[in-house]
């Protein structure tokens, strides 16, 4: 018996070590491996590029996480990104000062979030349905507004923002930090954050405890819409055009990042740092596959498989605790 018990013990311990590897550890491990395996990974150009790529999804994933914590989902964020690139492009080309154009665009994001809240709270629609509806409609409205054309933004200073950097770190990544810190404080250190969790866990119990459930749901979708509009502005700045078809599948990447980061799709479980790391894991997979010259078709397959593997092992690790 005892001779059998010892080899049975060993692999278990190895597994524990594997589970103990946090997501951040996984991200760092991927970076180290890529740095060794490819000459071009650890270059300033590639790293800043990677940070820029990951930043947009990271910001979306934070907003998405707020919504998922309440037990909902926001499928519209990719469409909101595309739509708001159009809005900001139109406003700037119409001669509005950049600050005003950006402000109005962000308000459009807030309005879309309010609409989602209205649909869910007042009309009683499931979040999946109302955000699915806006997802298709917004693309349509954007195409109608632009006649299907891209709008080139004729402002160099607007575009310069996405190329610029501070202390060697691209502005786009600074934006992630600028979003993440207040989001963290909001989620974990204010009562509204607690209310998000309570609504996702048991809306009825929250209501009977005096939590304003409708307002909490409005808040989650407004934040998601606002963050999506911020991403729309940043994307417009990065590519220099407004185009309603931009941001395709961003919503799915944001959801995937959130889930990789440990958010539960059943609600009430989630953090801010998790989705951030999740989004950079995703963009590192894409970046690494490019550098390793993996066929782009295969990249999609690999990304899908890795999502399954990461979430499965992370789930095992959590249950093990």
């Amino acid at each position: 018996m005892s001779t059998e018990a010892i080899p049975a013990e060993k692999p278990k311990r190895n597994f524990n070590a594997l589970f103990g590897l946090t997501l951040l550890g996984l991200l760092l491990l991927m970076w180290i491996v890529l740095a060794v395996a490819t000459p071009s990974f650890a270059t300033t150009l590639n790293i800043t590029n990677l940070l820029r790529q990951g930043s947009l999804i990271a910001i979306l994933a934070v907003g998405q996480t707020f919504v998922i914590i309440t037990g909902g989902i926001d499928l519209s964020v990719g469409a909101v990104v595309g739509f708001t690139t159009v809005i900001v492009a139109l406003l700037i080309n119409a001669g509005w000062p950049i600050w005003a154009a950006v402000l109005i665009t962000l308000l459009v994001g807030v309005a879309i979030g309010l609409f989602h809240g209205f649909g869910i709270v007042k009309m009683g629609l499931p979040p999946f349905i109302i955000t699915l509806a806006t997802m298709t409609s917004l693309r349509g409205i954007g195409l109608l507004m632009t006649n299907g054309n891209s709008i080139s933004i004729n402002s160099d200073s607007f575009q310069a923002f996405s190329r610029g950097s501070l202390a060697g770190i691209p502005y786009l990544f600074w934006m992630v930090i600028l979003v993440a810190i207040p989001s963290y404080v909001f989620l974990h250190h204010t009562r509204w954050g607690r209310y998000l969790f309570s609504v996702g866990s048991n809306a009825e119990a929250a209501r009977l405890s005096g939590v304003n459930v409708p307002r909490t749901i409005f808040m989650a979708y407004v934040l998601s819409g606002l963050l999506a509009a911020i991403v729309g502005v940043l994307l417009a700045s990065r590519i220099g055009i407004g185009n309603p078809t931009q941001g395709d599948t961003y919503e799915l990447q944001a959801i995937a990042s959130s889930v990789i980061g440990g958010t539960s799709l059943f609600g009430a479980i989630g953090s801010v740092h998790g989705p951030l790391i999740g989004s950079f894991i995703l963009s590192t997979i894409n970046n690494g596959a490019n550098l390793l010259n993996v066929n782009t078709f295969w990249q999609r397959v690999i990304t899908g498989l890795l999502i399954i593997v990461i979430v499965y092992f992370d789930g095992l690790r959590r249950r093990g605790k």
Binding site: R194, E204, G210
Partner: peptide, 21 residues
């Protein structure tokens, strides 16, 4: 289960829910 508790949240949060303000 249906109305009183947020089962998958910590005990402390459940206790404090009405008084976070």
């Amino acid at each position: 289960r249906d109305q009183g508790l947020c089962l998958n949240l910590p005990v402390g949060m459940n206790l404090n829910l009405p008084i976070y303000k």
